[in-house]
Design a protein around this nucleic acid. Structure first.
Lengths: 220, 220, 220, 220
DNA sequence: AATGAATGAGTGTTCATTCAT
DNA sequence: AATGAATGAACACTCATTCAT
């Protein structure tokens, strides 16, 4: 259609009228943005609706309550990509160093650089207020994530490429730098000194490097 | 005080009197707890007052508004310990490895294990809502912290004990694991699989170890 | 109609077509039911539409507003049966006792046992909110009803069959039992102890009996 | 106090300030008035508050929700006067005619002429919407009322003063005229032709008369 | 200084009504 | 004629803040 080729032609009339299939997605995107940026309690449903280009009433046509909107946001942004990820791991042929680097890098590409990255931060606080949602997130995201990392580290130990580790804590060697980045990104000015010059990619690279090699000089 | 000079007559009011100066502190403690646990917006001033054992009205006697209460919480819990810390660094005689380990450990003792640890998380989530407070925290805590870590790493590089690093990113090698812990601690169930069995000390130790040595086996 | 001339082609739309004229009636029936059962304010237009098997929008095609729907409900269910009733009275040949009994009985058959009975109760409760509608009902139903009863009682007094009565109050001797029944019927559990066993006919019979004979034993 | 003796002195300042004990009662009175007049759904809590001379928020200080306000209204206006009434019946020495007349008259004095009379009408509709409240009313008011009337009629039959009756229906000979009056009173214009000239006392007297003697002339 | 009753602006949610299709 | 997506005014309820005592 020439709508997409010339977006200037039908901007207004397209926004009006019925768009039943598109609405929920637009609302969920708007909600994710605002919830991550301002928090759940501070975000008014009217703001969400406005950002999605509809009225307050319309939002309630698709989501029975603000809390249900949050649930839907969480559900939508939890792609079950872990299956795919585990596949890749099974068939990975390279060294453990390469695998860890690949893991950091592909987390950035698939999660960290997307809007979904803010979800963790959002739930960080709301976990106490909405235990049910937190449990869902935990089950769908956190647990699979832990399992994946453990397997990677175990593989490295099995192959003699990684030093012996207590896996219960070693998981966080991978998790902490990634989570820190996703927690901090939506309001970088608090923790990052020069947000303008900060390159997440460079951050990821150094963290991957160092989790493998450590700070100390190595005898060559 | 003449209150204590007539102990038999005013036993009740004496208890009150003794506490009078402590009130603001108790309110700030209660506020920190609740803000960290439930978030700023979700916490009602009445809850804060109740936890501090006073009435809602009394709270407003000491703090003109809920936001001012938050500001006061931030101010109180930002001890200017960086001066002391920098002192210790100047006069530190050991190796860089020891210094980094000491840094992790003493962060845990002085910050991570205290209630103040939750402050970062609180402000992380409210940074966008209260830029002024965030800027204050940034200036008083984040920037000195960054400087401290940079100096430690620089010292290590100067002494040839640490490998060459881009300090702009290397700071986060230290910061990320510590911040992750303090962000996650108040609602551990979200990110930590077995919160009951989780030992922050063991976490700290492994992170310090690994930031120095890395995961890879080292040739002996 | 040419719709029926091509029955094979448009079987669906034919059903629609046949119903087209019936729509308003079905909506009015549904509205009466729901208004009487749940009250005007508590009934949503969507419910009315749903019960009539059409969409919300369709209802507004026939009735410009919810209040107009109520007006139409009232208008439809006020059959001008009083003319016929008065006729019967004029030509009635029996005793006054028989006439009163006949009056009770035929009220039950023509009004009390029909859905229209609930109208009185509905308007009783909404009279203060919609004075205009109440005035209409009063003029079309209440006043003719009063006149009818007065005439019956007057006839009885004239014929020496009924004791002398102040007609301004005596009307309610007939009205009260009938109205009570119609007010109470739609939610009988409130006033009637065993709604399952309650027979309106038996109620009507006893009330008619007693309004004529009274409770006291009569000397034979 | 001279407050009551000179009500003009402190009219305003008295209304402000704390009146914790008086508030609930004032709110309940206002609520009963408005609920009876306009119905539950149509009455806004703000109106109730305004009529009681307080703000919307204050109402919620005393009643957690609008529905709870309704419950409290019902509870408050159900005086347990049935015990007293049954006492009077036990010890009543006169004829059954006198007793029935007394019953009609004292219902008017104790119930019909008070604001509580509107309760029945209010619940008539809300019974379907709030079954729990209806059940309470039924248990506290309707059932004791039925029992009382049955006993009166039974006594009359036992003493040979009243004709044989099926009590299950005879109760309504007493109930219907009284209930009709209380249902109709709050918006008399609907059913009563000349509300200005209508005397409830005259109504009560005639109904009592007639329930005993009937319309038909009696041989003397 | 302390209380807690009172306030009212603000927010989530409902629902009669409109209108593009 | 019929639909049902969209609207926004209206209302129940919350809670930071005030103030008389």
């Amino acid at each position: 259609m020439n709508v997409s080729s010339s977006p200037a032609i039908l901007p207004e009339s397209a926004r009006r009228g019925r768009r039943k299939e598109a609405r929920p997605g637009e609302l969920l995107d708007a909600a994710l943005d605002l919830f991550v940026e301002k928090g759940f309690a501070t975000t008014r449903v009217e703001e969400v609706a406005a950002r999605a280009g509809v009225s307050k009433g319309t939002l309630f046509l698709y989501f029975p309550s603000k809390e249900d909107l949050l649930k839907a946001v969480v559900r939508k942004n939890i792609a079950g990509r872990f299956a795919e990820w585990e596949q890749e791991l099974e068939s990975y042929a390279g060294t453990s160093s390469e695998l860890v680097r690949y893991c950091f890098q592909s987390w950035w590409e698939r999660v960290g650089s997307t809007k979904a990255a803010g979800l963790g931060r959002l739930l960080l606080l709301e976990a106490n207020n909405f235990p049910e949602i937190a449990a869902f997130y935990r089950h769908e995201v956190v647990e699979p994530g832990h399992r994946l990392i453990r397997r990677i580290l175990q593989r490295g130990m099995d192959r003699g490429e990684l030093r012996p580790l207590d896996l219960d804590y070693a998981v966080y060697l991978v998790l902490a730098p990634l989570m820190f980045l996703s927690f901090v990104q939506p309001s970088p000015s608090l923790c990052i000194l020069s947000p303008e010059r900060f390159s997440p990619q460079a951050y990821i690279r150094l963290q991957a490097d160092n989790v493998l090699q450590g700070l100390c000089v190595r005898p060559t």
